[in-house]
Design a protein around this nucleic acid. Sequence first.
RNA 1: GGGCAAUUAGCUCAGUUGGUUAGAGCAUUACCUUCACACGGUAGGGGUCACUGGUCCGAGUCCAGUAUUGCCCACCA
Length: 921
Amino acid sequence: MMDKHYDPKAVEEKWYAWWESHGCFHAEPKDGGESYSIVIPPPNVTGILHMGHALNETIQDILTRWRRMQGRNVLWLPGTDHAGIATQSVVEKSLDKEHLRRQDLGREKFLERVWQWKEKYGGTIVHQQRKLGNSTDWQRERFTFDAGCSKAVTKVFVQLFKEGLIYKGPYIVNWCTHHQTALANDEVEHEENHGHLWYIRYPVVGSDKGVSGEPYRDYVMVATTRPETLPGDTAVAVNPKDERYAHLRGKKVILPLTGREIPVVEDDYVEKDFGTGIVKITPAHDPNDFLVGKRHDLPIVNVMNGDGTMNADSGRYVGMDRFVCREEIVKDLEAGGYLDHIEDYDNQVGHCYRCHKVVESRLSKQWFVKMKPLAEPAIAAVRTGEIQFVPKRWENVYFNWMENIQDWCISRQLWWGHRIPAYYLKAEIEAKAENPVFVVEETPEAALAAMREKTGNAALTAEGICQDEDVLDTWFSSWLWPFSTLGWPEQTDDLKFYYPTCDLVTAQDIIFFWVARMIMAGYHFMGQPPFRKIIIHGIVRDDQGRKMSKSLGNSLDPLELIDSYSADALRFSLALITSLETDSRVSKSKFEIGRNFATKIWNAARFMQMNLEKNPGIIDAHAIAAGDFTLDPALLRDDDRHVLWTLQSVLATMNDHLEKYRLQDGALAIYDLIWNKFCDWYLEYAKQDLSGEDEARRKQVLTLMTAVFSSALKLLHPYMPFVTEELWHQMGYGKDGESIMLAPWPTAYTPEQNQAWGLSQEIATYIDNKRELITAGRALRSDYNIAPSKLVTYLIQTVDDETARRFTSELDTLRQQLRAEEITITVGGEHLAMPCTVCKQGTIYLSLKGQVDAAAELERVRGELVKTRGFLKGVEAKLSNESFVSRAPEAIVQQQREKKVELEATIERLTKLEAAFAAAQ
RNA sequence: GGGCAAUUAGCUCAGUUGGUUAGAGCAUUACCUUCACACGGUAGGGGUCACUGGUCCGAGUCCAGUAUUGCCCACCA
């Protein structure tokens, strides 16, 4: 006998291992069929599973399991990202404990350590993903730094370079003067800094006075937080719309302390209302100034060394530390009469995340990809709808970024990553040549040959050249993910069959980093989109709406949730509480929904099993689950028809919801079917027959329950794979231990079956009405404070004969359920002089003999009459609108006509009622 | 500063082309430990759908404006 409470732990472990070992997740092109493929957004190899992954992967798994059951050839490809900075930092931190720096080990030894780390700990997240139940094809697991992906990366780099789309150029990076290395943006911590704004006068060239020590009459005033970079100024800038400085157009100013003449340029970057509205431009020491300099073709003067001391171009400050220099320059400016005044000023200043020294903006040479030519087809693809965002509004975000796209800086001064396949003459590098000769090739051998040709030195050996020290941005491998993982650049069967992939599921935070770039790479290298639909889901937040983060300590751990509630519960609850439209707030208790649901299903199965054990061999569960069963129409009751009909309508709704990625609605639909329709209504209804003497009827009920429940399990399987699989076997639905995950997705009954069994919307509506009638009857009792034990007399009045007939045929049941000694059923409006309650749609009226509130009923009927008349007016207006009648589809017009007739009948009925109530009053 | 979204029950959220009585889960109240399930059942309470105005026979839904909140982008030299 099954236990009262479902114990998911053992079950989930058992079935995952079973699925994996039976190759249930594995996909092969040779199996044919229509392909459905998704590549997983590869989590960082350093990562541990968080709620974001749980949501993201649950969505993908629901889609893939559903499609697989539909018979598609499904591939969901897993893998991880080598995550350059993150991984390197983790390993460097572990070196810290040994008081080692990576430089002490050297590049090769250090990389060995990282690989060791990856082998040891890199599997953490993929093991955690298994606990979620992901049906990813683990035989195809990939890593962005594995041999295949690395080959693709190198090939792409060389191709883009040869196409002229990759170039090497100057760029401002975050520079730590202590570690003497570039830092990525996320390695820079911004802290509030209590500093100053120095207001400095720059004399305008041509001014009448120019003697040092005297105030200039004609000058511009510049405000700066970094006076020490002044010797590197190569312009001052104003906003072109700033009327105050219109007279400066085309003029030059004198750079204080140096005597150099620098131009006044106009640039939108300048904020009119900040400081004086004039900015000094120091292209070598500020990223924005660098861009201004680029736009205006300004010279770049670097005044600082890598260690934060001033260099020769700073003039007399050479050798000073940058902060000493700041004080000296301010002193000199004051002495020269250039310093106007100083204000206190707070701003954000970047600090190194490791040594907390102020990060310097430093000019360096970096590699770039020209993005404009790549962006054009990618923009067109979304415009034409070849690729679609779901929800659609993200297209705006995408266009906004793509149309203003900047070149992509792809080089990183790290060791862990794909090394840039550029090769130099070793002699030139050692001599620190300004612009060393280089070649870009896929292999060192090819590079040597190319270099020999380029330099005309046939005697050049492999020792004479060296590879670029930098590695590529991690995204430079992930943007190839949809095809590099399928074997590109080889033209594999996988690639032919599964590319383009179908859906990409991700959160909005990597639309730029990843999604947009994959689209560009897809079109450029494959000539085809990487995927058709982009499903953007929200972010999982805590119950106060904050992002989950380690530092806030508000993270929910999916593994903990799986431990306390089960993976099924986590998945189902996530699906139920998240929509694509908004972020979701979650708290631990939310996951009880899924757990309780699993228990409910478990117990429904237990109930059925108990009854099957009492009737051994009465049905063939497997055959019924496979759709091979007959029902005797003579034995069918309306409640049977109702549940069969409801199952079919839920199936249709689920398909529609899943097609449109409304996973939440799908979850709700199956939840309602199983809990409310099947357990609360049908199982309760069936109890009387199951304990009855009629064996044919018992068999019929058990057949029907098996048919409905097995279909419901299938509909639920994408959401709750484990418990459905367990019950599938417990109930003997799969022949010879076949898995539910490969069972065919349910289909609607044939028209013949529907007809033979008398299934129709009318029957379903009748049962709904009956439920409502019983509820209303109970409510009436409580309204009039009548004890449940007391027998009363009900009057039921229906609008149509058919409903009256059905009620009459069930008088005994109704009497029992309403605890009535007498029930009178009539048709039409005359009888009802003492109405008390009205069921839905105004087609059934129920009253309790001797209990009337005619005044209230009169008021309500009048309200209803007003509404109905208004509605009728609208329909009439529509029908008298010529353009509607002539242009709208005939079916719609007909519908309106029918509605009109119906409304007129309703009004007539209500009018009679009104009169009856008025008389009663 | 630019853009996007949200505002519906105590809480978290649905509400698909405007349509008759606005739904769910949790929480809550009463009753029920009835032989599938108290992680349960039955019945109930709780909403001027942020505000103002507009269009319409009819607005949670469409339009305009206001307020509040959140996010993204660009960021003040």
